[in-house]
């Protein structure tokens, strides 16, 4: 009898904990969504739901040409960052994961050290490089600079996955006289697809969310990425920010990521933990 009551108490306590965790994680995003559907007069009454959906905020933000530009820039930059870091990460991790040579552990140490670089530490030097390359105020300048943080973790995660592949496959290819490049493309890559998808998504999210470089290395509205565009949305004065529009823009840029995370939850988790635990 007593034990039953204890068990019921424990179980309902646990359920309460689960509910609290869900509210903690989901409420802010939920609140952003309902705010984005409010009319400007409803905005200033705190409420937990909307009675009527207003699309004014979405119409406003999607009607702004500069925001569409920013969306396009973000897609372009993130896609190129994924492509470039996967390509370079794949070749580098093949060398680091499957070859033995002097200097291998030094290279791994350098990569680990670069992953700890504070972005601000290279800001003035990188600004100069970007300007010398003629890429200031240009999405391609952002693609290059984002390699600072995507390359280290791409190489790191792919190297751990490379090392887990069985040796025999590669040996068979070598005996058949395949060049290392052919071995990488024909033998290793098909086996690495899951790891490539995972690291690609992590690189995409990192590039999509980046703020400091995007803020510093672009100047005009039409070259910005969405995080900067959202941060710079302003109203008539500092105290009159158009919160409904900001929330609509926020929901728009976050939704693709949320859907991606819900779909590929397991892969993302395995990538995150492979990157960190082996560190």
């Amino acid at each position: 009898m007593n034990r039953n009551i204890m068990r019921i108490l424990a179980r309902s306590g646990f359920s309460l904990l689960v509910v609290l965790i869900l509210v903690f994680c989901l409420f802010p995003f939920y609140y952003a969504i309902i705010t984005s559907f409010k009319s400007s007069s409803e905005l200033f009454q705190a409420s937990y739901w909307v009675n009527q959906l207003h699309f004014d905020n979405y119409q406003h933000i999607l009607g702004q040409e500069t925001f569409i530009h920013s969306l396009f820039n973000s897609v372009l930059v993130s896609t190129l960052v994924v492509g470039l870091s996967l390509l370079l990460g794949l070749t580098a991790s093949y060398a680091l994961g499957r070859f033995e040579f002097r200097g291998r552990s030094t290279v791994l140490m350098v990569i680990l050290a670069v992953s700890m670089f504070p972005q601000v530490a290279v800001l003035s030097g990188l600004f100069e490089v970007i300007r010398m390359l003629g890429l200031y105020n240009n999405p391609f300048g952002l693609v290059i600079s984002y390699m600072l943080f995507t390359l280290p973790f791409t190489v790191w995660i792919l190297t751990t996955f490379m090392q887990q592949l069985p040796k025999e496959l590669e040996e068979a290819a070598i005996v058949d006289g395949a060049t290392p490049w052919m071995t990488l493309v024909r033998v290793m890559m098909p086996l690495l697809w899951p790891a490539l998808v995972t690291t690609g998504m992590l690189a995409f999210i990192a590039a999509w969310n980046e703020f400091l470089f995007a803020l510093t290395f672009t100047l005009t509205d039409d070259q910005r990425t969405v995080p900067v565009a959202i941060a710079l949305i302003s109203g008539a004065s500092q105290y009159e920010l158009p919160w409904g529009i900001i929330m609509a823009a926020s929901v728009l840029v976050t939704l693709p990521l949320v859907i991606m995370v819900l779909f590929f939850q397991r892969r993302i988790v395995s990538g995150l933990t492979a990157g960190a635990v082996k560190g």
Partner: peptide
């Protein structure tokens, strides 16, 4: 995972 995926700016 959702809070982690949301851009810091957002």
């Amino acid at each position: 995972l959702i809070p982690w995926a949301i851009p810091t700016i957002v």
